[in-house]
Design a protein around this nucleic acid. Sequence first.
DNA 1: TTAAGTGTTGCTCT
DNA 2: AAGAGCAACACTTA
Length: 270
Amino acid sequence: MPELPDVELFKRLAEQCCIGKTIADLEVADPKLLKGISPAALQRQWRNKKLRAARRHGKVLFLEADSAGALAMHFGMNGSLQYLAKTEKAPRFVRLALAFADGHRLAYLNPRRIGHVMLISDANAYIAQEGLGPDALSPAFDYAALTAALEGKRQAIKAALMDQTRIAGIGNIYADEILFQAKIYPLTSANALDEAAKRRLFQAIKSVLQTAVDYKAGSEILTDRLPNGFLIPERHAGGKCPRCGAAILSFKLGGRSGYYCPQCQPKPGG
DNA sequence: TTAAGTGTTGCTCT
DNA sequence: AAGAGCAACACTTA
């Protein structure tokens, strides 16, 4: 699930339901996912503090408490954030939850436990320390930033898009979608893209991610929540190109499955 | 029952 | 030195 659009929705959920609320308790159901602090220390530090703000950079969500640092949440392969009403029973896989004074809870779920929640002092310092590139949807990530990120790189353009140290927020599924919309063959060398291709790529990064957020679509296969013309619903064996009807082909890159249309995304020179 | 899977890290090899 | 490939992480679903 969680690529940039998913985490953006988690951020909005936190903003809409929890900002300004007093944290009555922290329920750490799985201490293994908590980094940088012990459950007891986190409870001491965050109890009776107010949740001040939610921020996002790439795939990371930051929840900031008043004068008590921030929690940096990584959702891994299939983590999520859920708001639970006072009387609502906790679903499976809740690993950590903020229990507010009004009885509602904000729960961090992570079935596979790939991912973590880390207490940090400052989001910007964390971004710098992790070496994260500019957030794909931020104004700071402009066309010049894209060309700089791809400069002299010979690796496949899909791998470059997914490299969080160059651009933060794009994962396997949205990388495929962006390259489909930009009509670029995913295994093209990054430094082999001409000006026109890079312009299309930049436009596709912004429009695909923004569209996904606007449609409230995660990267799950939710056909009815994505506009027509998206590749994502056809991202499986037997899929058909939404543009030309050709059979969608699959490939492997770095152990991950990718999908593309051989008609709309032809190999350079082939 | 087996395989595949939305992310990241660390290791090895070229 | 960049970059490719792979395993590991833990667990669900097809």
